[in-house]
Nucleic acid binder design. Structure first.
Length: 272
DNA sequence: CATCAGGCGAGAC
DNA sequence: GTCTCGCCTGAT
């Protein structure tokens, strides 16, 4: 067990911001306790007013989760960049001050955000859960908690369309199958994508079936930590039209546009 | 019953 | 290159 104190960190807000579909609130009411399945592991996280607990050994925390949760980034610094005259953005960032941009697994995020298109968060979680149960490797932690890994490209490439439909994936079933086959054949090399800059990675990802501009930008932001990626969905689009009729000041937020996008998305999601 | 959810691909032009 | 249209499914 590792206990830390950290400003600008809220596991609840990270969960609710909808960037990770396998981070879920656990049963207990009134306490912030969450379960995360990621990177082939299962981790429980608790948070009280002044401390955060990671239920794992010190070594695992240092080697895996510190990076995953972006704990070495100073989010106060990012807040400080916000234009004092931009009351809307100040409000949005203050509201979501505990959000962090995670470093998630590339393959898992590709499939997750293909599923996310024209879909709502609740159903996205359900679809991914079904996919993992059906195709992921079953594991059990030392404490006896069982969970399912995210299925590999190999396994998903072998899945029949019929079985994928059974996971409520709808028309996205074909996209998932095609994408798994592309990766398996090496038409898109994920290890190579991980080394590319933002524009190159985005273009390469868009070669995958079911990955367009918006989904590619989500993948760049949530898996590759390309924090300049600024995914524009229907909600963000409405906000931009309403709050920034003369255009969003991307220049001012260079290197942090994606983080700002998350503050706006979360604020809009929870308040409108 | 219609509309929409964190869009995308295919085809028309 | 830009535009339109259809699409699985569940919630409202």
């Amino acid at each position: 067990m590792v206990v830390i104190t950290k400003d600008y960190f809220s596991i609840r807000q990270i969960c609710e911001s909808g960037q990770c579909f396998r981070l879920e609130k656990l049963g207990e009411e009134g306490v912030d306790r969450y379960g995360l399945t990621a990177l082939g592991r299962y981790l429980e996280i608790g948070q009280t007013q002044n401390e955060i607990q990671f239920d794992c050994p010190e070594e695992e925390f240092k080697q895996v989760w510190r990076s995953y949760f972006d704990l070495d980034e100073d989010y106060g610094k990012i807040m400080g960049l916000i234009d004092e005259r931009d009351a809307y953005l100040l409000e949005a960032a203050a509201f979501g001050r505990g959000i962090r941009i995670l470093r998630q697994d590339l393959w898992e995020i590709i499939i997750s955000f293909i599923i996310s298109q024209q879909n709502n968060i609740k159903r996205i979680r359900k679809c991914i859960g079904l996919l993992c149960q059906k195709y992921g490797e079953k594991k059990v932690t030392e404490r006896g908690i069982s969970y399912y890994d995210f299925p590999s490209p190999q396994v998903l490439a072998l899945a029949s369309l019929e079985d994928l439909y059974a996971c409520n994936l709808g028309y996205r079933s074909r996209y998932i199958r095609e994408t798994a086959l592309s990766v398996l054949r090496g038409e898109v090399d994920l290890a190579r994508v991980s080394t590319m800059d933002y524009q190159a990675a985005k273009e390469e990802l868009m070669k995958l079936c079911g990955v367009g501009t918006k989904v590619a930008e989500c993948i760049c932001l949530f898996a590759l930590h390309q924090t300049d990626a600024f995914p524009i969905d229907t909600h963000i689009n409405k906000v931009l039209a309403r709050q920034y009729p003369d255009g969003f000041p991307f220049g001012r937020y260079k290197g942090y546009a994606g983080t700002i996008q998350q503050y706006i998305f979360y604020y809009d999601l929870k308040n409108f």
